[in-house]
């Protein structure tokens, strides 16, 4: 109970700090929403009136806390640029970003764990060495470039999908998933390569530990030692990495969304920053911060499931 309260307290504090920093940042950078809306030729009177209307003239903390209070009750305000409620804008885009994140995360897991096991088990085989080299290359390609490459090869040459095209999930869910496959690959491959390498080195260093020798002394086969003893220990650092990766995908999918023209959170965030559309930016950043903290909490819980030493006091 106490731990849950503590977790909740640090959750709220983190969200408060993150949103406060964003507020401060927008207060400091030049340019304002009123000028943006009316254009640079607008009269000072018109600008002043609009600022008044948008509540921009109120003191900083008043604005922050009134935003915070309404956010707390689910009201994220009205978009300056589109004049619609931020909540409805985000609601339609949430499934897209979440699907993209989940798909790429699943790809990372199903690629890296079997390959990591294989390469650590058959360290000396040519296939393992080939995987190592391939992984090294994949790791060094930035996702956006991989995205461009994939678009060129699969979109333009093989015509597996239409570059720039997109089908919304409420129109045809199957096609929607199809359009997200290649963006997911672009996100997943470099991360999968890192995760594979991490799992392999983790298994190799676990295998040197004393308990592995004990396991052999009981009459276990190499396979049993790997699956019954080593894997559960070796996977722990990989979980840390996967947790960070998941947070990274959530916060970093904007580049890939841009490359593949996917109308998710990322693209919306970029255009809203350009338009000084504070309510939208605020909401997106607050949501991303919350998702990241939730993921971290999940990772901590997974640790405790895997490693009994971390349970209890």
């Amino acid at each position: 109970m106490k731990t849950i309260l503590k977790k909740a307290a640090s959750f709220i504090m983190t969200v408060l700090l993150v949103t406060l920093f964003v507020f401060i940042a927008f207060d400091l950078i030049p340019g304002d929403a009123a000028t943006n809306r009316l254009g640079i030729n607008a009269t000072p009177e018109a600008l002043e009136r609009l600022r008044e209307e948008m509540g921009l003239t109120k003191p900083f903390f008043v604005r922050y806390f009134s935003w915070l209070a309404s956010f707390f009750f689910g009201d994220m305000g009205i978009s300056y640029s589109y004049g619609v409620s931020v909540r409805s804008m985000l609601a339609s885009k949430l499934p897209i970003t979440v699907t993209l994140t989940v798909m790429s995360f699943i790809m990372i897991v199903i690629l890296s764990i079997p390959i990591g096991l294989y390469t650590s088990k058959y360290e000396d085989r040519a296939a393992s060495k080939a995987v190592d080299i391939l992984g090294q290359i994949t790791m060094s390609i930035p996702p956006f470039f991989l995205g461009i490459l994939i678009t060129y090869v699969f979109g333009m040459i093989f015509k597996v999908f239409t570059p720039g095209g997109f089908v919304s999930y409420d129109i045809n869910f199957g096609k929607f998933l199809g359009y997200l496959v290649f963006p997911s690959i672009a996100i997943a491959l470099p991360k999968a390569a890192m995760s594979t390498k991490l799992l392999k080195s983790s298994i190799l260093s676990e295998r040197k530990l004393d308990y592995v020798r004990t396991a052999y002394s009981r009459g276990n086969s190499t396979m049993d030692v790997l699956y019954k003893h080593v894997l559960k220990n070796a996977i722990i650092p990989v979980i840390t990495f996967l947790g960070m990766t998941l947070a990274d995908i959530v916060a970093g999918s904007l580049v890939i969304e841009q490359v593949f023209s996917i109308p998710g959170y990322g693209r919306l965030l970029i255009s809203s920053i350009a338009n000084r559309d504070y309510p939208v930016v605020q909401a997106i950043i607050a949501i991303i911060a919350m998702i990241v903290i939730i993921i971290n909490t999940l990772v901590d819980t997974t640790y405790k499931v895997l490693d009994p030493r971390l349970r209890g006091s």
């Binding site: 530990l209 004393d210 308990y211 020798r213 004990t214 396991a215 003893h229 559960k232 220990n233 895997l306 490693d307 009994p308 030493r309």
Partner: peptide, 12 residues
């Protein structure tokens, strides 16, 4: 073995 802490699997 010598070291009973490290010679037992910590997660079993």
């Amino acid at each position: 073995f010598q070291e009973p802490m490290t010679s037992l699997n910590p997660v079993k």
